[in-house]
Design a protein around this nucleic acid. Sequence first.
RNA 1: GCGAAAGUGGCGGAACUGGCAGACGCGGCAGACUUAAAAUCUGCUCCCCGUAAGGGGGUCCGGGUUCAAGUCCCGGCUUUCGCACCA
Length: 915
Amino acid sequence: MLFGSNSRFQHLSPAPRSPTDAGPLPSNGTRRDMSRQTYQPAAIEGKWQQYWLQEDVFHTPNPGDPDFDPAKPKYYVLDMFPYPSGAGLHVGHPEGYTATDILARYKRARGFNVLHPMGWDAFGLPAEQYAIQTGTHPAETTAKNIQRFKGQLNSLGFSYDWSREVNTTEPGYYKWTQWIFARLYEKGLAYLAEVPVWWCQELGTVLANEEVIDGHSERGDHPCERLPMRQWMLRITEYADRLLEDLADLDWPDSVKAMQREWIGRSEGAEVDFVVEGRKEKIRVFTTRPDTLFGASYMVLSPEHPLVMEICTPDKVEEIQNYQREAATKSELQRAELQKDKTGVFTGAFARNPVFDDTDPQGRIPIWIADYVLMTYGTGAIMAVPGGDERDFDFAIKYDLPIPQVVDGGTRPTDEKEAEKKGFTRQAERRGETLICFSGRGKAIHSANSEISLDGLETPEAKARITQWLSQKGLGEARVNFRLRDWLFSRQRYWGEPFPVLHNEKGEHSLVPDADLPVVLPELPDFKPTGSMEPPLSKAGDWLVVTDPDSGERYVRETNTMPQWAGSCWYYLRFMDPKNSDAAWSKEAEQYWGPIDLYVGGAEHAVLHLLYARFWHKVLYDLGQVHTKEPFQKLFNQGMVLSFAYKNPAGRLVPMDLVEEKGEECFHKETGEKLERIVAKMSKALKNVQNPDDVIAEFGADTLRLYEMFMGPLEASCPWNPEDLPGVHRFLNRVWRILVPDGEIAEVPALHPWLAEERTNDPRLEKALHRCIAKVTEDLESMSFNTAIAAMMVFVNEATKRNEALSRSQASRFVQVLAPFAPHLAEELWSRLGETASLSYVSWPRFDPAELVEDEVEMAVQILGKVRGKITVAQDADDTVILDLARKAVATQLEGKQVIKEILVPGRLVNFVAK
RNA sequence: GCGAAAGUGGCGGAACUGGCAGACGCGGCAGACUUAAAAUCUGCUCCCCGUAAGGGGGUCCGGGUUCAAGUCCCGGCUUUCGCACCA
């Protein structure tokens, strides 16, 4: 035995396997392979996974725990937890997970207390649909899927602290989801309201907006309809301003911030009351351009506006009702498609524009209804200013309504595009008159009455002036409106959190006392939809009725359940203190771990999940439950893993099993058509879905991890190319070979003989290693995993060429650098180097900046920016020496020319400007 | 329609803050080892002309700024994503 490593290694590993032990290592290799010292992922990965789990290597203590070290800084790195679907992991999951795992391992090596947990967002429709189809209880399906997911995650060697695992469907978890809901309820942020929702008769449930595409359910393509139902709503709009403002300080992708800003959609303006002629009713409108009030030549109410039937004249009733019915059946998309062709109906009623005197005929404006006005935004009614709004302009042209000009935008540029940019969005001829729509800023014109004149004022001043006048006269007021609407928070589903709410016989509702939480989801034998609009929980028998033991009063439980978003709104907090049975989390734990330092997930959650979670967090902040205003300080969106797909000449995608490769080109197996290779999303239909299990079986988890990171930058979407896998596998093989000799196990040592003892470091390899450490360190800080791997490849190529010059110290340091990326291989090599503890907490190797400097540098010599020669100079050479050398290097090309200017960029190039 | 991001070899991708375009990997070619193959190792590989030395072209297209542009500015094209009558 050359080294003492084997005996120590036995101490280290719970399932000791010395490298010279020919006993059956876990393997799917052949007997012959087993007797050789080659890199066999199957033989080492399971062993280390088992070791990490059994030794609890990644257990992270909390403040107050005996093994907690308060001197260390903290790092909370979180993945968006998955919905454990029946299909298991696909290769997209491990992309973000590998990145966070690399960072978690790196930060541990940098001396951080790292919180890196994982859990399950397990409530939701797919499990319930599956349950309805098969009769299997969703709890059963969910448990099975979680087990599968967890096994797959562990087979990738992720360093999660599984003692912190959470599952949103466990009563111990959703008790606290209900508890948070109770706080929202107490603050008046949860309320019941009759709102139109998407109802899908076939699925027997309401669906969220994003689950309905063109009036049909995303799952199953069943027709859906908009129906008013009594629903729980959360008053997220109350936090709109703060959700908007606090985006500024977050380290998030600009695109996500922009999407959230748009979603919240803050707009400043004014509300103005218009009196209906001959009636008491007033119609209130919202406008962002109160300065154009003098240009309002008609009004439009949304077809759903409550005043429509009140004000319309008897001769118009039928026409109006027909239009309303039509509008109701149109889907959002249909409405949008008909954008250009605006429709509407005159109600027969007129309103008074409040800026005109009672007798002024200009002030008498017709009231129309049209579906281009939405009931859900502002007041559901608008004043139409066709001279300043394209939509109003189009409508006014179609129905021949007056188009007065109230803003002077200057001369209209003759160039169409130029004009549009300046705000001249429309132009039309009508009865010989040129009508324009100007929606930009300018000077107010034709905007005066006996009391006020806006004429000559610039748009912002005119807005301020008229708003002030309106509020003085009691005709209106300044107002901020949001596109964001309150959050529809209830679902008619079984597989979700029950609301902790009771209804009494008087129709009043109250909270279930905290002490009685959780309200456990009853185990219904029949959780199928009721066929009516009653939720499945309405069939829950005894569960439904509660009697107060003191007063004897009877209550009925709320039968709606919460949406899937609920559990994911706060799971990151539970991870901080997952076992706490007295509170959702302890103050100390939150104080220490919060906020999340890095949150990685797909861009599909850019708005909803991230906005909802921010909203809850802010409520919790107001309640003193958390100490930060925002939950996720830094957010990173990983790209999508795409796949190759094949397109026929007609542009249709062809499933993989019908594609035949002939040399460089591909053809359709049946039709013989030549096919073009493109990049597309993986889909079951195209049969181009890649499965991580297959990759692990063939190449091992370390290869999969490395490939996922090497494909390209994390934020980019890249195609999965199985032909590239051997490349990174070869790299790991080379790593193995620079440390471990090849040959029969019985005859060879666990390491190359020259690595047995410390000796002087080879200076060239030492420089290469320092460069590698420096680059990997820098790239990890900036999350440039692909280039970090390239840097390691460069070192290994160098070390392969000069293998016997590699020192033990260099080998160890390289293994440490590799460890976050390929942890199994690194642990194996680490133990072969004779180390006795997992390298997970060994401190990160240093690099010396002095070692990064080359003694000599090659510089390009350019003439007029074109490279004409190269020179090699000492790093610290004088400028005059360099210029001299450079002139000589390109002497022939410079002959007969006059050098006007010499530019020297140290260490890079010399450029002669010569004529 | 509006907004954002992106466009670099046969392919995935590198390139600091304007400084030698194509790191690293795949694929391809050649060589070494081998009876042979696989594996491994070594070298070459942006395109065009040329045996070579050498020359010319080249980062979606067209202009511009600069000694120098993949990078900055103006205009356009394409792709992807998001929003889509929000008054």
